[in-house]
């Protein structure tokens, strides 16, 4: 409208909607270890969040009396209960080690490709190893209970 038409060069006028490339989304990126573990860190955090209900239930039951505590023990002794508590143990220990990795980064270390890969592998393997270790100790003490 009365505006002079911009010359047909490679540079479009400022008012035109320019189709710039968008930032690639999740499914575009090549999956990397640190990216996957970043998601796992958040997922374990969310799992631990709701897992505190189990912790609170257990503590309240212990404070309430033998009947309530027997309910908790029946649950934690069941297959599903054991799986949940095992998962909770792993989520806790993984989130802990993965969080320690974040401390290293917060302090400004470990940003080289090899270093961040090593830290991330350490957290992943360490989390699984510690979980298995804790459960071996638990079975040794409790004889499967």
């Amino acid at each position: 409208m009365g505006r002079p038409e911009a010359p047909p060069t490679s540079k479009p006028p400022m008012t035109a909607r320019i189709e710039r490339p968008l930032s690639p989304h999740m499914q575009i990126y090549r999956w990397t270890l640190t990216m996957a573990l970043s998601i796992v860190h958040r997922a374990t955090g969310i799992a631990l969040y709701f897992g505190t209900l189990l912790l609170a239930w257990w503590l309240i039951a212990a404070a309430s009396g033998p009947g309530a505590y027997a309910h908790v023990q029946a649950f934690t002794g069941s297959i599903i209960g054991k799986l949940i508590v095992f998962g909770y143990t792993w989520a806790l220990l993984h989130h802990l080690l993965s969080g320690l990795r974040h401390f290293v980064w917060d302090l400004g270390y470990g940003f080289k490709a090899s270093e961040r890969e090593a830290l991330t592998w350490g957290a992943a393997i360490g989390g699984i190893s510690l979980t298995v270790l804790v459960w071996i100790v638990a079975y040794t003490i409790g004889g499967g209970r």
Binding site: A62, A63, P66, Y69, V134, V137, I141, G142
Partner: peptide, 12 residues
């Protein structure tokens, strides 16, 4: 780990 295997009285 200390609480494994203990009943309510033990936990308390």
């Amino acid at each position: 780990l200390m609480l494994i295997g203990s009943n309510q009285a033990g936990a308390k």
